[in-house]
Amino acid sequence: MLYGTRLRALSIATFVTLTGGLALAFFYAPMDADQGFMQKIFYVHVPMAIVALCGFVFGGVMAIQHLRTRDSRYDLRSYVAIHLSLILGAGVLLTGAIWAKASWGHWWVWDEPTLVSFLIVFLLYATYQPMRFSIEDREKQARYASVFAITAGAFVPLNFLAVRLAQAYTHPRVFATTDGGLPARMQLPFYLCLAGMALLYVTLWRYEMTSKHTSAQLRALRRKLAGDDAVAPAGRTAAPSLPTT
């Protein structure tokens, strides 16, 4: 698969959707009665969290594919997905802390189950890269990373369930869980922001896949032109290696 095709169109679509979504969030969506302007961070924080979690699960699905087919391209897909989700996850925790400070007066609150679960998931996935890095054999590294990705992917819903059970609902939730949900004028900006964030994730994923594939091809070509000795071996890395064909 060529990851470089239509990257420009995808980038433009991402830019337009995300900018449009944020513009609507700022100028069209109503001000929140309690939280005022600070509530606008909701349009960044929640889509980012949803996309990051979907990315983790996608990484797990690709890992299943990797174990089934033993094709290292699936390992690369899983690796890039998890690695981007981790970056988004850091953003989720940061925006979550800012939101908590603004609306509840503390940088961190333990009685918001979604945020706490997210922290646990983030801490778990933070060991993904060190784990890969400490296994030298490439085939084993890929296999173990896939086992980790599947375990962690299955852990995500279980963890959310357990943390939610453990905590009382003391704070009002933006998504009313029993009735209604979002008001109509907040729905459109929210879903547009969600789509924009998802597109951003896909775009970044495609860029990184393209980059990884291109450098693997470049190495293969160099080796072909200058001989095997001219190209230094890849060295120890957490990133998966592709078969150079």
């Binding site: 646990i120 778990l124 060190p130 400490s134 980790f148 962690a152 963890n159 357990a162 943390v163």
Partner: peptide, 25 residues
Amino acid sequence: MAVQTRARDLLVPLMALPLLIPVVI
């Protein structure tokens, strides 16, 4: 998983503790 890595003793608590949070709860 950890026994095959170089950082065996470092990785065990890092991986197992987050996974065991639901048990602790």
